[in-house]
């Protein structure tokens, strides 16, 4: 559990963010304004998703029975939702990349005729396809948090804010990836803005998460205390909130103003913050428990 969740959650969340942004801009017809976000950054996602799936597989203790995930649909089990969502979103990310492969390799040749037929088919229904991608990317982004929040036995995880929080963290990581890859100043400005909004939402959700904990039962108060004076205080507030959110937010505000900031710094800090957020929540959650 502990090992799987970080490699699954971080690349999964980041891939969800990248695909959701790409689909959204495609649906809104802004493909030509934000070329990197729609056409280039999604090329990261097949690798991220395969890394996540592989990590999930490695963490199973009964590995050769993994296929049982796909002979069952359990609506009450977030793990089952996640397995099925990954089964949809992974091929979707591959197809999205295939549709844009000529942007990276201009002389790409599919070699077989049926592949050209398939490409034409998906190009014809690209808008519908983008909607499917958007919806499943959002489900994947929320899933990384809901997987944890469904565990009543671990009070720190047992808050539904974790779903939106991890989705916002995934979207900010996705925006940071485009920020890193884009060479267009206008696009970079727009993604710095998106990143800023997402960081704001994340901070808002974190504050509300702790407000909720402190107003809740004793076990959740104890769980929150892990972060408010307990063993995770330093790592959480320094690595996640200050280095991963506040500093990049300030740098991005300066960038949007008239200062010139190397884009690498805020983007890498945001990715680091997103990774640390998941790392710390996964580990701290296993420390929190019911008292009896």
């Amino acid at each position: 559990m502990a090992l799987a969740d970080i490699p699954l959650s971080f690349p999964g969340g980041m891939a969800a963010g990248i695909l959701a942004i790409a689909a959204l801009y495609y649906i809104r017809g802004r493909e030509n304004d934000y070329k990197t976000a729609v056409r280039i950054t999604p090329f990261l996602t097949p690798f991220l998703l395969i890394l996540g799936l592989f990590a999930l597989f490695i963490d199973l203790r009964h590995k050769l029975f993994f296929w049982q995930l796909y002979t069952n649909i359990k609506l009450q089990s977030p793990m089952s939702w996640g397995a099925w969502t990954l089964l949809v979103i992974t091929p979707v990310s591959f197809i999205w990349c295939a549709l844009h492969i000529k942007d990276i390799f201009p002389k790409w040749d599919w070699k077989f005729k049926w592949l050209y037929v398939l490409e034409a088919f998906f190009n014809k229904y690209k808008k519908t396809f983008a909607w499917v991608m958007l919806i499943y990317a959002i489900i994947l982004g929320i899933y990384t948090g809901i997987l944890l929040s469904a565990f009543n036995a671990r009070p720190l995880w047992n808050t539904s804010i974790l779903g939106p929080l991890f989705l916002a963290s995934g979207l900010s990581a996705g925006a940071a990836a485009t920020l890193l890859l884009s060479k267009d100043a206008k696009e970079r400005k727009q993604f710095a803005r998106i990143d800023l909004v997402m960081l704001g939402i994340e901070l808002f959700l974190i504050i509300h998460m702790f407000m909720g904990f402190m107003a809740s039962t004793q076990v959740q108060i104890e769980a929150a205390r892990l972060f408010l004076g307990g063993q995770y205080t330093m790592s959480f507030w320094i690595f996640v909130v200050i280095i991963g959110m506040i500093i990049p937010a300030i740098l991005e505000i300066m960038e949007l103003g008239r200062y010139h900031i190397p884009v690498l710094i805020p983007a890498v800090l945001v990715l680091f913050g997103s990774l640390m957020l998941r790392f710390i929540i996964v580990y701290a959650g296993q420390v929190s428990r019911w008292l009896y």
């Binding site: 799987a4 203790r61 009964h62 993994f66 049982q68 069952n72 359990k74 089990s77």
Partner: peptide
């Protein structure tokens, strides 16, 4: 039982919570 993705954890006769070993993938949920 609720969070098991494969149905390996289930209720048997008399409400006994059981794990079917060959349905369990060891995910640890």
């Amino acid at each position: 039982v609720r969070c098991c993705p494969t149905g390996a954890s289930h209720f048997d006769a008399g409400g006994i919570v059981m794990v079917t070993h060959n349905d369990c993938i060891g995910c640890g949920a």
